[in-house]
Nucleic acid binder design. Structure first.
Lengths: 175, 175, 175, 175
DNA sequence: AATGAATGAGCCTTCATTCAT
DNA sequence: AATGAATGAAGGCTCATTCAT
């Protein structure tokens, strides 16, 4: 990947995350990246191709993150690490842009990629089972749902205290 | 409101909810409503005016719904009724379109209208206090967050069983 | 002519004069006249028909004015009265709107109605002949040209002193 | 400036001059220039930007022309050269389009740019003073006014003989 | 690899005009 | 006579995309 390709990808990530995929124009991306508009198409074929490239790049990041959860043996730690995703969402950098884009895109394209989360759900289910919760599957589902709620609030609510809420929730899940 | 005005409003509600505000063209709305495109502007001035009209209409619906919660004396019932909002979200009709639009719009305009929910939060806080929860404010916040999570899942996840999850959650909140 | 017809005519005269015929919309006219847009078409068929009506109304005014010049016996007075047209142009009322419209229209439609001025030209030619000018036809033409110059300046130049210039010119034409 | 940019500018100049700025559509300009409509906006941002580009190009032409008058020492020649502007107006080419546009625009935008003519007025005032006219300022103003009258007549009157009238006027100003 | 000119389709909006009431 | 709903065409402008260099 050349330097300009990277610049395009970064510009697109930020703009898509902030203004949405459909509403961001390729010309704006080119301007922000400091390249000619044509170059975008030379490298990524399409506006959609650009989105794919971003997604692909992000997916590997997710895999690493999720692997870390899935391979955790201690059930309590599985839960803790899951909450740590929420902490990362609230970090103030490119990581955050990436997560924001994930959510923006879900609503724009109406595709919630189940598969992506499936390993985590499995890990959580197993964890809750080990911890003798009555409905491990439902508990896993609930935790995933909480994650979505946290993200929604963090990105859309001005004065939402992500940290406090995570602490509050964590304590609820502590044996 | 003439018949065609209603048709425009309905078409717009559905399209905005399904495809987003920014990505839905006025010409598409007109076609779906079976009217000329110009008529939209005669009646609603703007594409934005059209959105305003939809929002205004929905806001009164919200007020009724929320009033019903706020005026409830029994704390347990306050919580139950709050969950019932989620049930309504999952109803299969215009009601549902309206809620979907609410969420789509949140992500598109990046404004989570705190004020709208404030009375409900207050009612929930009071309810949790009466029920002797340790952190009533945080519990209220959490329940609102759950609502957002439920909506996210319902609208974006193909095989999410809203009813089951509501039951599961309800039972957790039953004294 | 009903009351509303008159209101339409007046509104149109003023708007056409100020903003031009092509750039003034029928809806703006209706709003200014305080009538429905449809009524314009009921009474005047067309936007053009509206312009015709205004023109026709103005034409009779011109005839009276010109007749007063043409029937003047004293050659010096013919010249003086011609200058008085310029004075009227500068009057601050509906008369002025009418003259402004004349000029605006000339430039917009590119039709300088020679015929309209022909009688005046004849009268001026005769007058200059009686006063023993060397080229009476050319002098008449020149005076008409001065009229156009005066109007141009009056309507388009912010700090043009019409009165002073008329006095200056008049004195040049005084035997 | 690319070839197509020039074509756009020429087409716009001619159409604006013939049909007015407000009444000429960008699509018509594109068609006449043989380019896509979008190209107009790529190069000139706006319809107004297009007009600006034309004006700017013309302004430098004016400066040259006026400098030639202002720097003339012989007072009689100052007057003669002023009349020569009128001759140029009547030339049958792009020059003429430019002048026509100047006047059309004056009436459409209702702004007579005093500043543009100010140097010429000054030069004329000085010239008339040297030639011992009684009211040099008024004489200068009058000559400018004659110019406007000549232009008006030339552009709007079908059978106006610009050349003859200029000769006639010139002789009047010959010592 | 990179640019910038160029395009055609589509966008939101306004316009003159018609029609039912 | 008068209204206001309704229309279809056209307006200025933006967009994703292609192409020559």
């Amino acid at each position: 990947m050349t330097e300009k390709q990277g610049k395009i990808l970064n510009a697109a990530l930020e703009l898509f995350a902030e203004e949405g995929y459909g509403t961001t124009s390729t010309s704006k991306i080119a301007k922000k990246a400091g390249v000619s508009e044509g170059l975008i198409f030379r490298h990524f074929t399409n506006k959609e191709g650009l989105l794919d490239a971003i997604s692909k790049e992000g997916e590997s990041r997710l895999k690493v993150l999720f692997a870390n959860i899935v391979m955790e043996a201690d059930p309590q730690e599985v839960i803790n690490k899951t909450f740590r995703i929420a902490s990362e969402i609230a970090s103030d950098n490119e990581q955050s842009h990436f997560w924001k884009l994930q959510y923006k895109l879900k609503w724009e394209t109406e595709r919630y990629d189940e598969n992506k989360m499936e390993p985590v759900r499995q890990a959580l289910t197993a964890a809750f089972k080990k911890l003798n919760y009555l409905s491990p599957e439902k508990e896993a589902e609930l935790l995933l749902l909480l994650l979505d709620g946290l993200a929604t609030r963090y990105f859309l609510s001005d004065n939402f205290e992500m940290g406090e809420m995570i602490d509050f929730l964590s304590s609820k899940y502590q044996g």
